[in-house]
Amino acid sequence: MYNGGKILLGIIVFVLFAAFPFYNNIGKVSAKPEPKLDTPVIQQLAEKKCVESKEFMKAEHMQLLNDWRDSAIREGKRIYVNSEGKEFRISLQNTCMNCHSNKKEFCDKCHNYAAVKPYCWTCHIEPKEKKS
């Protein structure tokens, strides 16, 4: 092998450089996001339950919202009947955000943590909140 030493050195330097974000963050734990649920509307709910179970909403809310969107706009079906037979009006602004009127303390908490930027809010109007 020609210039073996130089090549090996080059590889080591490259790996160290490329892996910088990993070892730089070892041991540092970002605080787990804790979305807040204490909005006035949620406080007054008799049964504090979203349109589906908490576990489902955590994992699948994006898919649920996509299905809601297609149902409402493309099929004109604006009622969602959940797995327990309860009916909800399909609307991000008027149903979801009616309860979750604290976008900054709810949506943004996890979205920021996961570094995702959903573009719902370029069109949909967010609820009015006090600047924090």
Binding site: E60, Q63, Y80, V81, G85
Partner: peptide, 17 residues
């Protein structure tokens, strides 16, 4: 495939439509 465990849920039109 999403919605697998939500087979019971469905969509319908508003009654007032």
């Amino acid at each position: 495939k999403p919605g697998d465990f939500l087979e019971a849920s469905q969509f319908s039109q508003t009654k007032e439509l």
